[in-house]
């Protein structure tokens, strides 16, 4: 099998891949929740760069934009929930680190051995001129069921996430028909809790 990528492109994907892994390791090494979030963002951006080299322009842009926004939201949650957001002191919040490292290394080893021992088939066909068109035609045609399931799944996620995250509302306090004369609160006093 010949080489479909140029030498420069091969170097680019390898360097970006190494950057993605180093940034991924940094997530669990740095002393600040905010820095960990931005290390994860760096890992995602490196993967978006790999997508760009592999002619997946649309997915690269989607990944970069989506992950930038997601990490911006995540950093807010970090500061809300976590101690030490600024990394002013050493931060170690782990349990069974040695066992976890062993499991992680074992997973890496098993997949890597499989990757380097499998007899990979030759490339079937060539990439389309416009990979975005190929994806668009797939999700609006042959793979439309996937998009339908994704749509229903995202809608269910929005509803379930909102229900989980909101305070007790008037239906919790006054019943499904809102006809209770007194609110059913765990603590009396009239505040909506």
């Amino acid at each position: 099998m010949g080489l479909v990528l140029t030498d420069g492109a091969v170097v680019a994907v390898v360097v970006l891949g190494v950057v993605a892994v180093i940034a991924g390791i940094a997530v669990f090494v740095v002393d600040s929740m905010a820095r960990a979030t931005f290390a994860l963002l760096a890992s995602f951006l490196a993967v978006a760069g790999v997508f760009l080299v592999l002619d997946l322009t649309y997915l690269a842009v989607v990944t970069a934009l989506m992950m930038t926004i997601e990490m911006a939201i995540m950093v807010v949650f970090m500061i809300m929930f976590m101690m030490n957001p600024a990394g002013l002191m050493p931060m170690t919040m782990v349990h069974n680190a040695r066992g976890s490292a062993a499991v992680g290394a074992a997973v890496f080893a098993v997949i890597t051995v499989a990757v380097w021992t499998v007899d990979w088939p030759p490339r079937a066909g060539t990439p389309p001129e416009d990979s975005t068109r190929q994806l668009g035609e797939a999700i609006m045609g042959s793979d439309m069921l996937v998009m339908i399931v994704i749509g229903v799944g995202l809608f269910a996620t929005m509803v379930a996430g909102t229900v989980l995250a909101t305070h007790r509302g008037r239906y919790d306090r006054f019943g499904a028909d809102l006809d209770a004369s007194r609110p059913d609160d765990p603590v009396r006093g009239g505040m909506p809790r």
Partner: peptide, 28 residues
């Protein structure tokens, strides 16, 4: 090149498994 990229993927998955198992914070 495919095998190198899949090795990168394996490394990301391995690091992720380590993080998901070892961290005490739910967000981490």
């Amino acid at each position: 090149v495919l095998q190198l990229l899949l090795t990168v993927a394996a490394a990301l998955i391995g690091v992720g498994v380590f993080g998901a198992l070892s961290q005490q914070s739910i967000v981490m």
